[in-house]
Write a protein that binds this DNA or RNA. Structure first.
Length: 416
RNA sequence: CGGGGCGUCGUAUAUUGGUAGUACGCCUGUUUUGGGAACAGGUAGGCCGAGUUCGAUUCUCGGCGCCCCGACCA
């Protein structure tokens, strides 16, 4: 893609009010625009990052046998009344509820359990067609008391949510742990190598504990306790030991840290099925309520988390798997013709390349390249062309590599 | 929701109870291209409302908005 056609507008100065690193860098780099506190437009660069993350999560969801759908965001009051959640004071705090001019009552989705259940109950449910596993990527509205920290806590954000329905608790449990592994694979692939699976309280509607996926980070809002030897971890709400106590699982040392929640998984059991009067026909001919599981990943929050984790004093350093482009092609001096040739060649090979085709000074282009944080910067200049070469530099590295124009293809192949 | 801070061109800022300035951006022209170019000309601003005052961007009150801390976070 050409820079000049990508609506990329970088800022030289940090935004006045934003102190969160992700907000500062994403706004300066032209990844997002803020409409109001906790509500953002994803600009072309930011949306490309989103789409990279989405595709990784999609692949992992498909790999565990779930199918993608898209559920609506405008919900009628009635279905929420069936579970009693419409009038729940806790729900009322965060759910946007309103009357339209015709006096009908609606809510904006902050989660989709009711809608998922409504979708599947309209079909004959038998043990033969369970389990059902459906997921979607969509917006969630939550009237947060305090939106903050850029993309980390918004009033409107994008979530991947997966819902599953099973004949037995055992089958739900089995899938629950499959989802856990799929989530860890997804986080790993987007560049977050050390996400901890943390036990958390289930609240009133869940059977047993739930699990949160927490990334240790100084900007995190949560506090977790984890073992420095094994995978044991609990969040603040359920941790009952004292700091310094040995790990209850392996005897190792328990540590405390602040962390950011990037996902969670819940087992609801049959509570909602019963409230909504949903049954499946089991092999013994009896009607039984199915078991519900619900699993979320904060998609837009992940972008913020990645910006928090991968940056230096001049900008973002995107992991290759989620970078908006793989290559940032910069042409300096009067090299536009050669650069365009190169750009076309790369585009034909389906390489994700951003070509800075602007009439800007070298300093502006190079600074913007640092700020935007694309993994590889390729410079074409009179200097490099004199050697029939381009200069390649990895973001965040000091080393530059001169590569002959004729050898660029093999350089690209080595990348994979 | 409690507490604190802040609202001035697109961005970042300065000053002032009496003509609102600077830098960047943006526009025109010329020269420029390896780390946010040079020169010349131009463009654009006091969050909203009320009050005090001869006069308010400045002082007072109210509202709205943004940021931060806390509470909250199925």
């Amino acid at each position: 893609m050409k820079y000049s056609q990508s609506f990329i507008n970088t800022r030289r100065d940090d935004p006045k009010d934003e102190t969160a690193t992700n907000a500062r860098l994403l706004l300066r780099g032209g990844f997002i625009d803020k409409l109001m506190a906790g509500s953002f437009t994803f600009l072309p660069l930011g949306w490309r990052v989103y789409q990279k993350i989405e595709q990784i999560v999609r692949e992992e969801m498909n790999a565990i046998g779930s199918a993608e759908i898209l559920m609506p965001l405008l919900h009628p009051k009635d279905v929420w009344n069936e579970t009693g959640r419409w009038a729940d004071p806790n729900v009322k705090q965060i759910m946007y509820q309103f009357k339209s001019v015709d006096e009908k009552e609606y809510g904006l989705s902050f989660t989709h359990e009711e809608i998922f259940l409504d979708v599947i109950r309209k079909n004959s449910l038998s043990y033969k067609n369970l389990p059902i596993k459906l997921y979607h990527f969509s917006t969630k509205f939550r009237n947060e008391a305090r939106a903050k920290s850029g993309l980390l806590r918004g009033r409107e954000f994008i979530m991947k949510d997966l819902y599953s329905m099973h004949t037995t608790q055992e089958d739900l449990d089995k899938f629950y742990w499959e989802v856990k592994d799929a989530y860890l694979r997804a986080f790993n692939r987007v560049g977050l190598k050390d996400v901890k699976v943390v036990e958390a309280s289930g609240g009133v509607f869940t059977s047993g504990h739930t699990h949160e996926f927490q990334l240790v980070s100084p900007v995190g809002e949560d506090n977790i306790y984890f073992c420095n030897k094994c995978d044991w971890a609990q969040n603040k709400e359920i941790y009952t030991h004292k700091i310094g106590d040995p790990c209850p699982k392996c005897g190792g040392q328990v540590e405390e840290a602040s962390s950011i929640e990037v996902g969670n998984i819940f087992r609801f059991g049959t509570v909602y099925s019963e409230k909504m009067g949903i049954n499946f026909k089991d092999s013994d001919g009896k009607d039984k309520p199915p078991y519900l599981g619900s699993y979320g990943i904060g998609m837009s929050r992940l972008i913020g988390v990645l910006a928090e984790v991968f940056n230096d004093d001049v900008g973002i350093k995107w992991p290759k798997s989620v970078a908006p482009f793989l290559i940032h092609l910069v042409s300096l001096g009067n090299t536009k013709t050669e650069a365009e040739k190169l750009y076309r060649t790369l585009a034909e090979k389906s390489v994700d390349v951003l070509w800075d085709d602007r009439e800007e000074s070298a300093g502006v282009k190079l600074s913007d390249a640092d700020l935007i944080g694309i993994p590889y910067r390729i410079i074409v200049s009179d200097k490099t062309l004199a050697q029939e070469s381009v200069e390649i530099k990895e973001r965040g590295s000091d080393k530059v590599e001169m590569v002959k124009l004729g050898e660029l293809s093999s350089w690209l192949e080595k990348l994979e």
